[in-house]
Each structure stands twice: as structure tokens, then as C-alpha cells.
Amino acid sequence: MSSSKKDRRRTPPPDPEPLPGLIDAHTHLAACGGRTAEDVRAILDHAEAVGVSQVVTVADDMVDARWAVAAAHWDARAFAAVGLHPTHAADLDDAARAELEEMSGDERVVAIGETGLDYYWTTRSYDCADPAVQRDAFAWHIDLAKRTGKALMIHNREADRDLLDVLAAEGSPETVVMHCFSGDRAIAAECVDRNYYLSFSGTVTFGNSDELRAAADITPAELMLVETDAPFLTPHPYRGQPNQSYCVPYTARVLAAVKGLDEQETARILGANARRAYSLPLR
């Protein structure tokens, strides 16, 4: 890789024009460098300056879950989701179950997850949990969400049919968030029929994402969320550069264009949807 490309990959995108009312429905503050209260505050100050007033920070593993809950207590603008990413499903032993149950009762925890199925990494990573283990862990997380009354945050990678079948068999919680929705319009339509929220990340802005934009087009505005999945999936034209919650307006503006809606109204709707999905306090 040339030095100019390396430099670009290290350079954060410029600040977007502010778009008030937005909420980052899924980010990873610890992976963005938010491992102290001061660092979290700096990330959220940056986001708030462009209109992103609150974020939900999400866990991949037990260490991340502890970071997420801590961050949510460090700053009133942050809320946490706790759970084990499907690739780490084999870590769901009795101790992990007990700790996640305890965390789920925290008032700053607003969702269970990210959980679900990931078939992409089963053939690419030696330590990825196999599909049967993933399904068992997924079912446990579904039950925890139902018992706590909190949103279920779904991770789905190359497992559309099986994932929807598990949700149907187990019975969905009242609120299901399809994080970083990546399906086609048929999968989107099925999720809409089930009243799931579809959360769109920077991938919807990519040049090769026509089918994903078609899925967004058929999703009712009241079931749409916007997220970064930071530090990953930075919106076009900054793909590959570091992502943070302040980049949400780039994706929100693309969603507004897809839906043929005013940008300010779209931000208001997306923010209201996130507050409803996660039972967040008004700001």
C-alpha cells in the first residue's frame, strides 16, 4: 500500500454539516478509543457538535460488555448493549450467563446483543463458534431480552433464513433491531412484516449497495434506524477511513435521499425511532 493510501486510512473524515436530532443506534466506543471517561466524553462531544445527541455502545465479548456498561455510566449521552457476538458464542458458559443477566438489569443497559448468527466467519476463523453453538447462544439471548423487556440487537452475516427461522421458533421479543441491515428487499419486507427495526450503517452509502438502498426504500420510515458500527463501515466517500459517531449525518442524508424526505425531518424521525426502540430519555 502506498504511503498516501496509508495516510488516508489513518485520516478521519471531515465533519459533516450538522443534522440535529440524530442518535447513533450502534457503535463500539471502546474500539474507537473510548476506554476512559475523558476519551468517551471527547467522542460524544464531537458527535453532539454535528447533531448526534446520544449513542448506544455495543459489546462483542465479555470484556467489551464491561467497557460498554462503564461508558454508559461515564457519560449520560451513552447507553449500552450487552451480549456475546455470535462468533464468541462458545464463551457463553454459566459465569458469562450470570454476569450478562446481572448487567442486563442495569438502568443504563438498553439492549441485549449483539447476538444472532454469523456464517461468514465459520469458514474463515479457527476460533469462530460453529453454527449449532451460535444458535443455542442466540436462543439464550432472545430469552434474556424477553425476560428483561429490553431490545434485542441482532447481528446477521450470511445467515438470513436461519436467523429469521430461529427468531420465529423462539418467539421474538417486543423490540428487535436488525443491526447493520445487509439483506435484500425480500428479507427487508419480511422484517417489516414482523415489525422489526432495520438499522442502516455506512454500507447503504456504498456504490455497490443498490439492493440495500432498495431495501431501505421499502422500509417504512418509522422502522428505520441509523448507525455507524464505528470504527467500521465509514460512509462513502470516506470508506476505509476511521469511523466515529460524528459521521452519522453522512448516512442519514443518504437515507433521506432514498426515501425522498427532507433531511431535517429524516433526522427527527430517525432519532425518535431510536428513542422508542431503546426507551431512551428525551434530550
Score class of each variant (00 low, 15 high):
Ser53Ile: 07
Thr57Phe: 02
Val58Met: 01
Val58Asn: 01
Ala59Asn: 00
Ala59Trp: 00
Asp60Pro: 01
Asp60Tyr: 09
Asp61Trp: 03
Met62Ala: 13
Asp64Thr: 04
Asp64Tyr: 02
Ala65Lys: 06
Arg66Asp: 12
Arg66Lys: 11
Trp67Asn: 09
Val69Pro: 09
Ala70His: 00
Ala71Arg: 01
Ala72Gln: 02
His73Phe: 02
His73Asn: 13
His73Thr: 06
His73Tyr: 05
Ala76Gln: 07
Ala76Thr: 05
Arg77Pro: 02
Arg77Lys: 04
Phe79Ala: 15
Phe79Glu: 10
Phe79Tyr: 15
Ala81Cys: 04
Ala81Gln: 01
His85Thr: 13
His85Glu: 12
Pro86Gly: 14
Thr87Met: 14
Thr87Trp: 06
His88Gly: 00
Ala90Trp: 04
Asp91Tyr: 00
Leu92Tyr: 07
Leu92Trp: 05
Asp93Ile: 05
Asp94Trp: 00
Ala95Asn: 11
Ala95Phe: 07
Ala96Gly: 09
Ala96Leu: 09
Ala96Pro: 08
Ala98Trp: 02
Glu99Lys: 11
Leu100Asp: 13
Leu100Pro: 05
Glu102Leu: 14
Ser104Arg: 01
Gly105Met: 03
Arg108Asn: 09
Arg108Pro: 01
Val109Arg: 07
Val110Pro: 02
Ile112Arg: 08
Ile112Phe: 06
Ile112Gly: 09
Gly113Lys: 09
Gly113Asp: 04
Gly113His: 07
Thr115His: 08
Thr115Tyr: 05
Leu117Ala: 14
Leu117Ile: 14
Leu117Asp: 14
Asp118Leu: 06
Asp118Met: 10
Asp118Ile: 07
Tyr119Thr: 09
Tyr120Trp: 12
Tyr120His: 15
Trp121Val: 12
Thr122Cys: 11
Arg124Asn: 01
Arg124Ile: 00
Ser125Lys: 13
Ser125Met: 12
Ser125Tyr: 04
Asp127Asn: 11
Asp127Tyr: 01
Asp127Gln: 04
Asp127Pro: 02
Asp127Ile: 04
Cys128Arg: 05
Ala129Glu: 08
Asp130Asn: 11
Arg135Pro: 00
Asp136Glu: 14
His141Met: 04
His141Ile: 03
His141Val: 05
Ile142Asn: 11
Asp143Cys: 08
Leu144Arg: 15
Leu144Glu: 10
Leu144Asp: 10
Arg147Phe: 04
Arg147Met: 07
Thr148Met: 03
Lys150Ala: 13
Lys150His: 09
Leu152Met: 02
Met153Val: 10
Ile154Gly: 07
His155Ala: 12
Asn156Ile: 06
Arg157Met: 10
Ala159Ser: 15
Ala159Glu: 12
Ala159His: 12
Ala159Asn: 14
Asp160Tyr: 09
Asp160Val: 06
Arg161Cys: 06
Asp162Ile: 11
Leu163Cys: 12
Leu163Asp: 10
Leu164Gly: 08
Leu164Ile: 14
Val166Phe: 10
Val166Pro: 06
Leu167His: 04
Leu167Asp: 04
Ala169Gln: 15
Glu170Ala: 15
Gly171Ala: 12
Gly171His: 10
